[in-house]
Amino acid sequence: DAVYNILIDRWTKSSTPIHCIAHSLNPWYYSKEWINDVSGRVSPHKDMELSEERNKCLRRYFPDVKERRLVNQEFDRFSGGLDAFGSFDSLEDRWVLDPKAWWLVHGSSAPILQNLALKLLGQPCSSSCCERNWSTYSFIHSMRRNKISPKRAEDLVFLHTNLRLLSRNDADYKQRESKLWDIGGDAFDSFDNGAGVLEIASLSHDEPTMETMLFTDDED
């Protein structure tokens, strides 16, 4: 019972309207490979609970009836694999391409839904960015600086983060003593553990050039 309650609690937290519409706009869940992988599995538009929550989100996101009707028509073509969504490449790429890439390649015939899908499916699923922000905040608002106002602390975090980004344009960032100062910190010599691990994990998404330069230097 304890395990069951934990699973139900986790499902409830992830079964919000915004989660359901994101799930409904992921082409991966309409592919024959995903549907046939488990007996009785159905695509999102055939799931009653998902459909109810998705429609609830659409009513809130598109309060105008005419615009919402256009969105529903676009979703009908997308979920049913109709018109441009029924082409061979579109259907095959549902399982192969990244969801965001799929919408960029095949979603132009449904511009409203494409824009919504890119916003939802482009959200990071990692909390590492928040964790880094909290680490900066804890550095600024400490036991010795506990009287600082929330607004001042927020401004200082903003300045710290943006100065950190601006410093990457400086020539010293790629050489001399301050080389890549914000990636490894004091543990720069080793990326096997410590502060550098999470930073390196995000480079492949945000800064592939820097990642290439970093590991090329190691090989030399």
Results as ranks from 00 to 15, higher is better:
174 K>G: 02
131 E>G: 12
203 L>P: 06
167 S>T: 10
125 C>E: 12
47 D>W: 08
188 F>C: 07
212 T>G: 04
184 G>L: 00
89 D>W: 06
78 F>R: 15
96 V>Y: 12
77 R>F: 04
78 F>G: 15
128 S>G: 03
37 D>N: 15
196 G>N: 11
19 H>F: 10
213 M>C: 13
103 W>Q: 08
9 D>K: 14
110 A>F: 13
140 I>P: 01
61 Y>S: 04
5 N>M: 12
56 K>C: 02
96 V>Q: 13
113 L>F: 10
176 R>C: 04
184 G>T: 00
39 S>W: 09
141 H>I: 03
220 D>Q: 14
88 F>G: 09
76 D>K: 15
190 S>L: 04
132 R>L: 01
126 S>P: 07
183 I>E: 03
154 E>G: 06
136 T>E: 02
208 P>R: 09
100 K>P: 02
73 Q>M: 02
106 H>N: 05
72 N>F: 00
37 D>Q: 14
56 K>Y: 07
55 N>S: 11
55 N>K: 15
27 P>W: 05
32 K>E: 04
91 L>P: 08
158 F>R: 15
41 R>I: 03
157 V>T: 09
196 G>M: 07
24 S>R: 05
169 N>C: 13
32 K>Y: 08
71 V>H: 01
26 N>Y: 07
220 D>F: 06
195 A>W: 05
47 D>A: 13
215 F>A: 14
18 I>G: 00
30 Y>Q: 11
186 D>W: 07
68 R>K: 11
183 I>L: 05
117 A>P: 15
34 W>A: 01
182 D>E: 04
174 K>Y: 02
193 N>I: 00
24 S>P: 09
39 S>C: 13
143 M>G: 03
122 G>V: 13
179 K>E: 00
41 R>V: 01
48 M>N: 15
58 L>D: 03
30 Y>P: 10
219 E>L: 15
59 R>P: 09
153 A>V: 09
115 N>G: 05
92 E>C: 15
3 V>K: 09
74 E>W: 08
14 S>N: 08
178 S>V: 00
195 A>S: 09
193 N>W: 01
81 G>M: 08
90 S>C: 12
24 S>E: 10
165 L>T: 13
56 K>F: 04
154 E>Y: 00
192 D>G: 14
31 S>N: 06
87 S>Q: 09
121 L>W: 07
89 D>K: 14
